[in-house]
């Protein structure tokens, strides 16, 4: 479903991605792990071109996302993204946060968009918070609204950029729970995460990245129980 070929990205002289090749199948949940600064987030952000790669290609269902003439705004509708810092729209209520995309981008009617939004907010356990502003929500609630906002565009794939890294520990569970449900429903997901438990339990495949290279990939049990690459071994020995 997603194919990445020889992806290179530098910020100035700093080479962050040194040629990433991979493919992600439909309904697959891929968890990307690795130390800070290994290029995990940049890799994710290059997929929907929030960062422009200098070299290499990304394909979504055979369509080249990285093509200069690609209709990136349409393609992004098919790739939902959830950020580490939520990035909810603070001047909009939670309901408006979720309906804004469908109404303004897809041209959906307000009633129809609200129907969908209410259903999604219920799904993430916030059906009663529709007229609340983000500032009145806890971190975990904000992130769940952000997931609902991304889902409202009915994307084919969801990109998660360290969705629980800025949460208080007691709120991590509620967000992972929502993500787990999503995975069970068959959503294609790429999750950059430090939650090894989640990666092991929910991930179909795990990517280990270090220094801008996809060092090792495999099933969770291959990566966590029997890592081949010495770097993977050393990283896991520190975090597990």
């Amino acid at each position: 479903m997603i194919v990445v070929k020889n992806l290179h990205k530098s910020f100035g002289k700093l080479e962050v991605l040194k040629g990433i090749d991979c493919h992600i199948d439909q309904k697959e949940v891929v968890c990307v792990i690795g130390p800070s600064g290994s290029g995990k987030s940049t890799f994710l952000r290059c997929i929907n071109r929030l960062e422009e790669a200098q070299q290499g290609q990304v394909f979504l269902d055979g369509e080249e996302v990285t093509a200069p003439n690609a209709d990136i705004n349409r393609i992004r509708q098919e790739m939902g993204m959830v950020f580490q810092l939520f990035n909810l729209f603070p001047h909009k209520t939670t309901l408006e946060n979720v309906t804004l995309g469908p109404i303004k981008i897809k041209g959906m009617s307000e009633e129809q968009a609200e129907d969908i939004a209410i259903k999604l907010l219920r799904k993430v356990g916030l059906g009663d918070k529709d007229h609340v502003f983000p500032a009145q929500l806890s971190g975990g609630q904000k992130q769940r609204v952000a997931i609902a906002r991304a889902l409202a565009m009915q994307p084919k794939v969801m990109l998660f950029d360290e969705p629980t890294s800025s949460l208080d520990p007691e709120m991590v569970g509620e967000v992972l729970e929502v993500m787990k449900d999503l995975a069970h429903e068959g959503m294609t997901m790429i999750v950059v995460t430090h939650e090894m438990g989640f990666a092991r339990e929910v991930g179909h495949r795990v990517f280990f990245m270090d220094e801008g290279i996809l060092m090792e990939e495999g099933t969770p049990s291959q990566i966590f129980d029997n890592p081949q690459n010495p770097r993977t071994q050393s990283f896991l020995s520190k975090v597990l």
């Binding site: 992004r76 790739m79 950020f83 990035n87 729209f89 995309g101 981008i105 991304a150």
Partner: peptide, 26 residues
């Protein structure tokens, strides 16, 4: 915040739409 533009663009808004609905009101 820079993340506001990114969130708007990631939904599929154009630069103009993001400015109009997200950045300028804030």
């Amino acid at each position: 915040d820079k993340g506001q533009m990114e969130a708007a663009r990631s939904l599929g808004m154009t630069h103009g739409q993001s400015m109009r609905y997200i950045i300028l009101p804030q």
